[in-house]
Amino acid sequence: MLDTLPLENERLVYARPRTLASRYTHYCPGCTHGTAHRLIAEVLDELGLQDETILVASVGCSVFAYDYFDVDACEAAHGRAPAMATGIKRYHPDKIVFTYQGDGDLASIGAAEIIHVANRGENITTIFINNAIYGMTGGQMAPTSLIGQKTTSSPFGRDTQLAGYPMHMAELLAGIPGTAYSVRRSLHDARHVIQAKKAIKTAFEAQMAGIGFSIVELLSTCPTNWGMTPGDSCDWVRDQMVPVYPLGDFKVADELQQARGRSKR
């Protein structure tokens, strides 16, 4: 597009990443799935991985993720993306393989698969979208829903006696020896988006270095099913989710820390 080229005496500061497909997304206005997609695409661009990468999309709102990345892709059954990614990565160990999974997919129906992919130290990367709700099916309780959170399947609020507690996947997976990198970031404002991108980049670098499983949990919004404006949704992440799901690095393998130290020098 001509209007995305700089004029004379201008320089380009930001342009849509190449790895992000030109297709319009089906996501609701303000949904941070789009932000996460864009950050992944930026990282793949910066690392020069576009034509080396295979995406395993999952079931949920991000089921069409394969339409939004210009990379080889497949679509896994609900929760099975880590298993499918294992099959691909074992066959093509020189390729970059990542799964993109929501909280129902990863922390509920796919809990076994994500734990074992980590335990085997599979050299894959998982981008985990935690928005505390099932988006695609219309706002049911997720394993990551907050205590007291009202959803269409917890109309009186999540009751721990009935439905247990919010699952802390980044912390849980950090406790597994095969995990090289497990961190939680948030997408609720520009500063946190920048931090999220750095983490995504580190996760892919961990895979490139072949040092084990890497996962970035991203606190995300679901304005439609939360019944809020996009702006209020970001505030809800900041005020309600972050206190329950602290941001931080829960596992950074020694090899990765050394690699980061080298790159800083």
């Binding site: 004029l7 930001y14 990443p17 949904c31």
Partner: peptide, 14 residues
Amino acid sequence: TVCPDGCITVFRDI
């Protein structure tokens, strides 16, 4: 940075 739809291109004057 925050745009979920990647629809913004940014230029800065030299």
